[in-house]
Amino acid sequence: MSEHETHEVENISTNLLLQTVDSLLLDGWRLIQVLALSTTEGYEVNYSFGGGYAMKTLRLHVGPKQSVPSITSYYAAAAYYENEMRDLFGVRIERIHPDWHNDIMGEKTPRAFSRVRVQGTSVERPVPLDAPPVPLASSPAADAQEGAIK
């Protein structure tokens, strides 16, 4: 399959994200998706871009308390992915526009992905079905931070 030939994954650091995204936008790439994973160190965030049938993915590794700049000023469609990612995983994202303040999935939806993996395995810390929604540790802080920037 030609899948691998047309797809490259690039590891970048968080402070280079906006710069790289800007140059991708100028080169005519469009956003395909944003994807988060929980890892042993915190989160891994993947931004996939498409140009024609080729795909390019930028990969960030962020700590549980580290925040990621929003790319919504470059790609408006990213707002949906970033809001969802923040809602489900609790990844801190700075300056999403528009920001739906943890409301896109509804208040009662559990933030089940919002946890740090233990030793990279998946079943050590399952979320029981009857558990109350996991409080989203980052959201008030992130909101306060955002308020401060404005």
């Binding site: 999935m105 509804g106 939806t109 089940a112």
Partner: peptide, 15 residues
Amino acid sequence: QIGYIHRGLEMLVEK
């Protein structure tokens, strides 16, 4: 506004 049919099946892959 979404979330009315959110089931969380992406996480089910772990089980």
